[in-house]
Structure formats: C-alpha cells, structure tokens
Amino acid sequence: MIEFKNLHKKFGKLVVLDGLDLNISKGGIFAILGPNGSGKTTLIKCLLGMVIPNKGEIIFDKKSVLRQWAYRNNLNYLPQIANFPPNLTVLEIINMVKNLRPKDSNSEELIELFGLKTSLDKKLGNLSGGTKQKVNIVLTFMFDSDLIVLDEPTNGLDPIALIHLKSIIQKEKEKGKTILITTHIMSFVDEVADEIVFLLDGKIYFKGTVDALKKQMNNDNLEHAIANLIAKQYA
C-alpha cells in the first residue's frame, strides 16, 4: 500500500534518511520505532508531504505522492503536539476540519466516547494538554480513511482515554485499515502492534513481527529487546 524507495533527506549537514527502502502492505498496525533522532518523524512527514525528500520516491495507493495533495483525503494524521488556534472553540475546530474534507464523519460518537460534550463550547486556548490531545484524537479518527498515521498518540492521556484509544485502534484494524504508530512506550507497542519497523541511522534496521524481534534478540521482554537493538548501535 505504501512504498518508500531510496529515500534521502538531509537537514543542512545532518543526514536523517539515508537511502531508506520500506514496503508497508495493506491492513495491520505497524509501529515505527527507533532511538531519538533516528528519522521516525521525518519519515512520516515525508509521507504526509510536509517534508520534501532530497531524493527518492514515495508511492501511496499506486501513485506517487511527491508534490501532490489530493491523496491526503484518504489519510488521517495525529500530530505529536496538539496546538490549535486559541480563540476557536472545540466545536468550531471540529466543524472546520469537517468542512475542509469532503467526507462523512462520526464525530458525535467520538465526542461522546471521550467525554468532550461539556467542553464543546470552550475555547481551545483554555483546555488542558490532555483534553487537547482528546480533541486531536477526535479530529483524527472521525474520518473513514485507509491509512491512519499516529505520532505519539498516548501523550498526556488519562487511563480511561488510553483504553478508549486502544479500542478505537483495534476497531480500525478490524476494518482492514493500515495504521502507522510512532511511540516510545513499549508496553503500548507490545499490546497493539502487529509489526515493528526499526529505524537506525536513516535506514530500516529491522522489520518484522514483535515475536520475531523477541526471538532474534533472545529476549522475551520487548522493552529489553529494543534496548538491546539500540545498544548495538552504541557499541
């Protein structure tokens, strides 16, 4: 479904993506992992068209995405930091995003689920970080798209919201969606991810199921297995 071919990206002298090749098939939850600064966010942003690669090609649904924008209608993205215009209310921002995308949405259901009903008329500037993240999640999941990209989705969520988030992710997976997640919380990966893509030095270092990784690292604990993987780099 998504194909990255020989992707290069430099920021000044810093090489972030160095000839990265990656194939992601349709359906399933893929966790993109890697140490800080390994290029996870850059990779996702290339896919979204926010970062323009120096070299290489990205194919989504059999079409190149570089310098295109219409393909984003079939893609939902949850950004890492939720920061909205402070003077708009929650309801206004939801309506605005709906307005921008010619698609059906199920926002009511999600608003109910995350208990945002009482906050609908509040200004976004007055909300707490966790509540903003809930709004962010509603904005991401209210559309029916084939690809869902989540950048650190668990940020600032309370336990109940986290449970809801996991159940939504599972539901979307059952519908056959492709879900990309970056996170540093390994228990979350262990619980939800089908496959792990491990980035190191701008390349794919490991790609496979969670069990395959554990086996390869000879470690039953995912957190330690990943730590071993990173430690190899430092060694």
Binding site: L48, G49, M50, W69, A70, Y71, R72, N73, L75, Y77, P79, I81, A82, N83, F84, P85, V97, L100, R101, L139
Partner: peptide
C-alpha cells in the same frame, strides 16, 4: 503561534 495548527492543516487534503 499557529505553527502546530498549520501542521495540522498541512496534513489535510489542501494545497500548501
């Protein structure tokens, strides 16, 4: 001030 919000918009199907 609207940088993060702009990023949200950039992920929508709209021309930059």
């Amino acid at each position: 001030n609207s940088k993060e919000f702009t990023e949200l918009l950039l992920a929508q199907p709209i021309n930059r």
